[in-house]
């Protein structure tokens, strides 16, 4: 079965054990959310998949190909796109230049390749900022640019780390529409989030992570039916 499979992942930062036995399964062309509080292990999970944190044991399979232990460059070139929580826009480069850096010469994993114009079609707000340097963008603009820059590499799997953290409600709702469009285009998406409403609007399935362990896997319908579960792990409801 194509898609992303993460099995029994253990990741450490130095001597501190961060992820315990994390297993995730994400079907091809589906959108999955990793919910959890600050420090639960969401970022470390995404970084482990991207090769930015090195798991000590476990397996990561992308379309049945083992990518665990590969470098971030190689993982990116195999079709994984990563949008970090900090967005990391290149501040001296213009919006267009940031997008152009995201182009890569590696084979494309999508039928239709992305171009700067196609990104502007998805995020019209960015087109008006074409020549502005990254240092002078708002949080929402940075987030759109960061996603657009990663899309320029034509990934098949998109990893988004807390995409709407700290953004205004209007921007959150715009991003939810835009990410839904990506979903309809056939991208496989794994994103981490604390914002329940946003997650529910775009995800097919949800995993809950707490203290580095997966505590729940299922649909939002099932999760919503269990107020105790939401309260325990998400401090809501």
């Amino acid at each position: 079965m194509p898609g992303l499979k993460v099995r029994d992942l253990h990741t450490y930062y130095g001597t501190s054990h961060i992820l315990f036995d994390v297993s995730l399964e994400i079907e091809d062309r589906s959108t999955v959310c990793l919910l959890g509080r600050n420090g639960a292990g969401k970022t470390t999970t995404l970084k482990s998949i991207m090769g930015l944190a090195t798991p000590r044991s476990g397996a990561i399979l992308l379309d049945d190909l083992e990518i665990g232990g590969k470098s971030p460059v190689d993982i990116a070139r195999l079709g994984v796109g990563y949008v970090p929580e900090e967005r990391i826009i290149f501040p001296d480069l213009t919006v267009r230049e940031n997008l152009e850096v995201g182009e890569k010469t590696a084979p494309s994993y999508v039928v239709e390749r992305w171009s700067v114009d196609a990104i502007y079609g998805l995020f019209p707000m960015l087109e008006a900022l074409d020549g502005r340097v990254g240092a002078y963008l708002s949080g929402g603009e940075q987030q759109m640019l960061s996603i657009g820059r990663t899309l320029m590499g034509n990934p098949s799997l998109l990893l988004l780390d807390e995409p709407v953290e700290g953004l205004a409600p209007a921007v959150v709702s715009a991003l939810s529409t835009q990410i839904n469009r990506l979903k309809k285009m056939g991208l496989t998406i794994l994103f981490s989030e604390q914002n329940l409403a946003f997650s529910e609007a775009i995800a097919d399935r949800v995993f809950i992570i707490e203290s580095g362990r997966i505590k729940y896997e299922g649909t939002f319908a099932d999760l919503n039916a269990d107020a105790g579960l939401k309260h325990r792990y998400l401090a809501v409801g």
Binding site: L52, A76, R77, I88, F90, D92, L93, V101, K104
Partner: peptide, 15 residues
């Protein structure tokens, strides 16, 4: 110019 700011991000973009 991008690498001046973040080597890690440049690599995560597959460069």
């Amino acid at each position: 110019r991008a690498a001046v700011h973040s080597r890690e991000m440049v690599e995560a973009l597959g460069i």
